[in-house]
Design a protein around this nucleic acid. Structure first.
Lengths: 214, 214, 214, 214
DNA sequence: GATGAATGAGTTTTCATTCAT
DNA sequence: AATGAATGAAAACTCATTCAT
């Protein structure tokens, strides 16, 4: 058990240090100091700095998975029920990431280090797979439209991902995460277009030449 | 005497090498060899390896901006026109990124190196700003719903970004990019829900506990 | 665990290598080899090659100070007593420098490297200060003439310095250092002129145009 | 002749740059820029940076020799005449060095670079030789005491050298150089001791333990 | 198990020098 | 003769990892 505790101390310290400096600039010496152990001790628990890094990422990936697994998933028979379940899921994910901002940034946007790319890819692939499953289930149930499943599944994951990266990791938003989830779901479910019965005349002042800023 | 070698030779070689290995694992010696110049020559044109890297990213960022700026933007008065214009834009972006897959991966998902984070941030910020502008213009023209603008703008950018990263950079898709764009737009504009008049009974077989894969 | 190798091993090796090649041409790798440690080890003990160099110079500067501080200084009431005390001091300095010829050359005549100039300057300034103190004390005691104190103090230090540089460092003289000291003191105390009562006729064959050698 | 001019321009520029940065930190590019020529041009006139450096030192060494050679040396038959001639010599040397402070510092205290050590040594050796010649001539003429010629000759050179280094190069004194020369000569000729007929009782407060400053 | 001193491989960068124009 | 772009050798320093205690 002591072993477990020390390992925890190390990954926790490593998470802080990696979050602070990124993988390459992080020093094993700093991690050891922050964990209150000698440098050599790190190598009793982890094969290498790389291994320690991957372990840190894996912990967050696991937490995200657990967060979603912990939810009560039931068969869904209405759009509202579907929406509520996903709002729960998104909120859990957001909160888990908000609690580990720094590591979340590395998990989603860090450099490829050892198996780190796989950890990220697997997480995203799983998320996409879940997404695909729901889209298909929803479609066959008549709740959802039949659309380009793979593309849209990826779009949904990307939308979540970027929200985490920009709004939670970069801006540091930690409150109102459920509201954030609801806003995203509203967009996902209903799309952008105004209800068909609304008049669609307009000379919309859509500006020319986008992204010519900066 | 004018520069005798083309700066382009260097950035092109650097793009290949950085794409192959990422920033940290890329060796200046390999870049020089690939460009067919001596190592020292690199430093006649760029202050450092870091500077060279940022220059490579900036070139792609510029290309993406130019791709979108080159389009004919007109005032939009119908949902279809809006959709067409964005299909053009997305297609241009996809094609630009497909032409520089490796660098696109670094630009969108690479580690922070020198000013590289700013280059990425500026690009995303600009994209989000454009997105916001269109959402607001579309809404005030009655074409689009009024929704949480910032959140949705980020969602849209994230959705694009992840599509580029996964489908174009990782999977290497180079054809059918307009179709991809159309699929995304269909999702963006109409959302996931089946038309309201469709019956919404269903016992949706929505599976419990998502993301418990691998 | 206490340092396992002796810092002394490093400075001694460094002293030899620096003495052999001077600061710039000295290679850290050679110092490490000469000390029988790995290159990296040098940097456990010293921040940089520069720091190691300065440490080597400081050690000799300290030794010179200690050599002079170890002498029994008493109030002086006669020219002979004064002369004896200084003969002791000079001899100590000469012997200390003779024991570290190479380093003495660098301390007194090496290029400015990091704080090395300050180490030298401080030593010389202290020496001049002591000189000034003695000249003034001697003058107020009626033992010495009243003369341009600062200028003469510097002259005396310079005379010692150059003797060390030329006779001890360059020529490698290691014996008869007390005699050397006595000769210098004879010159310092009595000057060059023949006793006034000696006839001063002479057709001195003072040669014209000096220094047209080589 | 154009060649001469360019060479002059180069040595003059090099003197400034070497004086500013020392040999190692001086950049050939900076010298070329300061001289208003291309880098390659330097190598039309000098074999290497080292050669240029030595040329700069040699120029000052030559100037010092010429300064002394330009004086009217006549046979000396009195202490006063001797003193006057040397006052002239010292003043010339001081003024020459004051006019090239930076280079004087390098000539007398710079690092060993190529033949630079020889240039310095030759100058000092010549100075010592002249000194020896005068001491011997003066002694045989009965003007000067018979003393340890070599030692004293070196002492005299060292005294001059250090005065140049400290008072002219470091402190930047440029005026009153003749007075400085006279002060040195007074010390050299008469020594420190008070005239014998002055009472030599005194309890001289000669301080104990010198050089324990800093 | 824990320690931390020692290791030494590995890489960017500088800058004197060359030589095609 | 002059140019200055290109060259490439050379070296300090860092830091992950090891292993004797």
């Amino acid at each position: 058990m002591a072993r477990r505790i020390d390992e925890q101390r190390l990954t926790a310290a490593a998470a802080r240090v990696f979050a602070r400096h990124g993988f390459h600039a992080a020093r094993v010496s700093e991690i050891a100091r922050e964990a209150g152990v000698a440098q050599g001790t790190v190598y009793l628990y982890f094969k290498s700095k790389e291994g320690l890094y991957v372990a840190v990422l894996e912990r967050l990936a696991r937490q995200i998975r657990e967060a979603s697994a912990g939810l009560a998933w039931t068969s869904v028979t209405s759009a509202n029920a579907l929406r509520d379940q996903f709002a729960d899921l998104y909120t859990e994910i957001f909160e888990t990431c908000a609690a580990s901002r720094g590591v979340a940034g590395l998990l989603l946007g860090g450099p490829p280090v050892g198996r780190s790319s796989e950890v990220r890819s697997e997480l995203l692939r799983d998320a996409e797979a879940v997404s695909v499953a729901y889209l298909e289930a929803g479609a066959s149930a008549g709740l959802l439209r039949s659309i380009a499943t793979t593309t849209v599944a990826r779009a949904i994951v990307g939308l979540l991902l970027h929200t985490v990266t920009r709004t939670i990791v970069e801006d540091g938003r930690a409150d109102g995460l459920r509201a954030l989830a609801e806003e995203l779901l509203d967009f996902e479910l209903h799309g952008l277009l105004a209800p068909a019965d609304r008049t669609q005349t307009a000379h919309t002042a859509v500006p020319a030449a986008p992204m010519t800023t900066s």
